[in-house]
Design a protein around this nucleic acid. Structure first.
Length: 557
RNA sequence: CGCGGGGUAGAGCAGCCCGGUAGCUCGUCAGGCUCAUAACCUGAAGGUCAUUGGUUCAAAUCCAGUCCCCGCAACCA
């Protein structure tokens, strides 16, 4: 039965270029899951986009000397290009700097206010006269009063680790202009009364099942420590204007998650789709994907906002929080000069190499590690030696002995019966892992399915059998070609490009096929004797030691 | 005593929730095969499951303590 499935990937901050960390943490797993659900015949709305408001964008534009609008457009295009290159199958890739989004967020705010969850308070903040703006804590630096470190940030000293208040810094200055001309001013801000929403969130979270471990433990940590009221407005220009508070805009974490809704609305506008079916009806399953740094906002703050409004929004059913991908020993961070962007990555290797590797190493239980050595080993072994080699040995053998049409099947034996029952088992495992968002397990099952192909060929030895029993050899190759078709179908969610190639080799033109149970019946429906096959020279290319050494040198990984 | 995650063969990981002969991939060694990108298949060696104590007929798995690594500490998203 078809199920409505809403899938959202965390909206990366538009500032800067997306790197492998973003891809592994939310973008790719959500795409694999979306593709999988479409193949199952489910009705999928898959939403992605960029988060564009906030101080860092404003400051970034200032640094590049261009208007903020131009700045976010420029970086949105970088994001879009990256996602396109990674074959992400969003139904809509949107942004938060739209009128639709503004209207939505303002109405949410007004509903919360109406329901008594907003409170205005006057607070003191550091103001930079030269920059003509209030400074967020991290935009103030000065000498740490505790250890004397000269570049301590307003919220924390990176040297001694103490938590600071910006007013305690000795000789503070603005990070933006370097100006020391600062003063403390009073300013009024709106606060979201999270403290009074604690019970609401707690009761709700108890009804959720299937969350990843890291997601649940972070959410529970926040609840256990007790929620605190949180300031949701800012004194900057680039943001959504707060109703009845001139000069104020919303704090990005108040508005960003609502992007999932506003982008759905945009999708509906453009396609005529019905966004309300996904956001208001209870038979929708809602899955969110994000890195662990985003968990508190999605597990506590956003649901609290949804629950406290008058409108009955669909809240997340399954929240998949992922850990981080580290680059060698350190962080995957372009600003530190190590690591590389998503665009660099697809320049280096076929996108499906990355999609496969990143899913095979999905940081589900702990942070994962990327090095070129590990990457090359796995690509060479899994894709080249196991999958690629199987496909080529079958197709080339077929061409040289029987020509480029699928040979006849003269009757399966116990060997094939055993093969298909093993395949049934593994395919079930694969489906189960994908349904449960266990991408490492899924990739492992897929790999084991490929191995079954090599085992089958090795044990049944068509190259010897053909000398005495040509019909038996034809039967073996017939079945092996069916395996290639099966591999193609199963590879679709993870490696859409490779899947297409595999299916083309064996002449399967039908799209959007999937297999749930009986593998033998399924492949019989795909491949018929006499079908024409296409034999490529190669399928994958190995990454040799020279290349690895080169890349390690270039990217310090 | 801030919080969370992790510590399992040379490397990377699974198993832990629901205790019952310690598993996967790479690497190493041996054998088979020669259709295939020196690829594939089979087998072997290699671990007192960080550490100490407890519960139990039985603990990698449950409980308590200790040590080490990583991340986060709510105005960076």
């Amino acid at each position: 039965m078809s199920q409505k499935v809403l899938i959202t990937s965390a909206l990366p901050y538009v500032n800067g270029v997306p790197h492998l960390g973003h891809l592994v943490g939310c973008l790719l797993p959500s795409d694999v899951f979306a593709r999988f659900n479409r193949l199952l015949g489910n009705e999928v709305l898959y939403i992605g986009g960029t988060d564009e408001y906030g101080t860092p964008t404003e400051v970034g534009a200032l640094k590049e000397g261009i208007p903020v609008r131009e700045y976010v457009d420029k970086y949105f295009n970088v994001h879009k290009e990256t996602y396109d290159k990674f074959n992400l199958s969003f139904n809509k890739l949107g942004r938060t700097s739209t009128d639709t989004h503004t209207k939505l967020v303002q109405s949410v705010f007004l509903e919360l206010k109406e329901n008594g969850y907003i409170e205005n308070k006057e607070i003191e903040q550091v103001y930079s006269i030269k920059d003509d703006m209030f400074l967020a804590d991290r935009y103030i630096e000065g000498t740490c009063p505790k250890c004397g470190y000269e570049k301590a940030r307003g919220d924390q000293c990176d040297k001694c680790g103490s938590l600071l208040d910006p007013v305690d810094l000795i000789n503070p200055y603005s990070v933006i202009s370097g100006s020391h001309d600062l003063e403390v001013r009073k300013t009024e801000h709106a606060f979201l009364k999270l403290k009074s929403m604690q019970g609401l969130v707690e009761d709700w979270i108890k009804t959720r099942v299937g969350w990843s471990k890291v997601a649940l433990s972070i959410a529970n940590k926040w609840l256990k420590e007790g929620l605190k009221d949180r300031c949701i407005t800012r004194d900057i220009k680039w943001g959504i204007p707060v109703p009845d508070m001139p000069g104020k805009v919303f704090y990005v974490w108040f508005d960003a998650p609502w992007g999932y809704v506003s982008i759905s609305q945009k999708w509906a506008e453009e396609t005529g789709g019905d966004w309300k079916r996904f956001w208001f009806e209870n038979d929708t399953r809602y899955y969110q994907f994000m890195g662990k740094d985003n968990v508190p906002f999605h597990s506590v703050m956003f649901p609290a906002e949804e629950l406290a409004t008058t409108t009955k929004w669909k809240t997340v059913d399954v929240l998949k929080g992922l850990n981080f991908l580290n680059f060698g020993d350190g962080k995957f961070s372009k600003s530190l000069g190590n690591g590389f962007s998503g665009l660099d990555a697809v320049e280096l290797f076929d996108v499906d190499y990355w999609r496969y590797w990143l899913m095979a190493n999905s940081p589900e239980s702990d942070d994962a590690e990327f090095t070129f050595n590990i990457f090359a080993d796995q690509i060479n072994k899994d894709l080249n030696d196991i999958l690629g080699n199987f496909v080529l040995r079958v197709l080339k053998f077929c061409r040289s002995k029987f020509g480029t049409n699928v040979p006849e099947n003269f009757g399966n034996t116990d060997v094939e019966n055993k093969l298909f029952s093993q395949l049934d088992e593994k395919v079930e495992e694969y489906n189960f892992a994908l349904s449960n968002l266990e991408f490492r397990k899924a990739t492992k099952a897929l790999r084991e399915i490929w191995v079954l192909g090599n085992e089958y060929i090795a044990n049944s030895e068509p190259w010897s059998v053909i000398k005495t029993d040509e019909k038996r050899a034809m039967t073996i190759i017939h079945n092996s070609i069916k395996l290639i078709a099966l591999f193609g179908v199963l590879s679709q969610p993870i490696m859409p490009g490779v899947a297409k190639k595999l299916l083309a080799f064996v002449g399967v033109e039908k799209e959007n096929l999937w297999v749930n149970d009986n593998v033998e019946d399924f492949v019989n429906s795909l491949i018929v004797s006499g079908n024409e096959i296409f034999v490529p020279d190669t399928l994958f290319e190995k990454i040799d030691d020279v290349k690895v050494a080169e890349l390690k040198e270039k990217y310090k990984g």
